[in-house]
Design a protein around this nucleic acid. Structure first.
Lengths: 149, 149
DNA sequence: TCTGAAACCATCACCTG
DNA sequence: CAGGTGATGGTTTCAGA
């Protein structure tokens, strides 16, 4: 889908605050809210906007620990491996990558004990993986910065 | 902040769709929308809810390439290093980690050429870093899965 | 892309158990 | 004191221009 500057302005606003009323967006971009409604609908339909999500503080809901995990997958077992990763609740992101690791995960767990259990009992147990490396996240300087549209 | 099952139900709904009207949330959890309004306000105030963000398809807005980058930081230069990373637009996440790398980044770029420029002209140029490794993301199986609250 | 109108929603002061 | 009611002003949404 072709996006013009008006669409991009709408995206910038909704990236920063997805609950901004269309009427307020309309004021900011100097158009009617019917137009905003229209354009947002088109961007949702076409997949430019993939959804709206509340960002919840992980620590506050009991996930005090997070880590990045690199995995090596045995050749030919890729799809199989991904399928099993999807079933593990703490796994929040799965990327296929070039370089030292074939798959990089972001996992969340209650604490370091729960992380260890997740790694040893769920991930290390899976076959199709040869090596892994866990990088515990000690702190996050920032994340969920808006894309510079 | 203490969260009860009602709060958690609200969080689950807003994680999945941040634009759900309070009246609809009220229907789902069988309470009045005044109560939902109240509880959401309290969770925003206390930092349980950190914001509401539209998820924009990166490819559709011109970011066809993404990578995870590991960096080694010279001792004592950490704060300095983070400050410069914050200024680079394509850098969307910065985590401090244990293990092989001190800092892990998520970067977005227009294409592999732009990624190379970002790596060589902006990141490799910075001092305070000794080594780096770039893992280009070939595909993402999933990301932004909701936390299992 | 806008106007206008109907339906819908957020918000708040004020009750109620 | 958490939760509900009800009024009101703002918002969404859609047909029609």
């Amino acid at each position: 889908m072709e996006l013009d500057e008006t669409d991009r302005a709408i995206l910038r606003i909704l990236q920063a605050d997805a609950r901004t009323p269309f009427s307020e967006i309309a004021r900011q971009i100097d158009m009617s809210s019917a137009t905003v409604h229209d354009r947002v609908g088109r961007m949702e339909e076409s997949g430019v906007i993939e959804g709206y999500h509340a960002k919840v503080n992980a620590r506050e809901v009991g996930f005090g620990t997070s880590a990045l995990v690199g995995l090596r997958v045995q050749q030919g077992r890729e799809e199989d491996a991904l399928e099993r990763l999807r079933e593990i609740e703490g796994v929040q992101e799965v990327h296929l990558t070039t370089g030292e690791w074939d798959v990089m995960l972001r996992v969340f767990a209650e604490d370091t004990d729960a992380l260890r259990e997740l790694m040893f009992d769920e991930i290390a147990e899976m076959d199709g993986f040869s090596r892994s490396q866990t990088m515990v996240i000690l702190g996050t300087d920032f994340e969920d910065r808006s894309l510079p549209i």
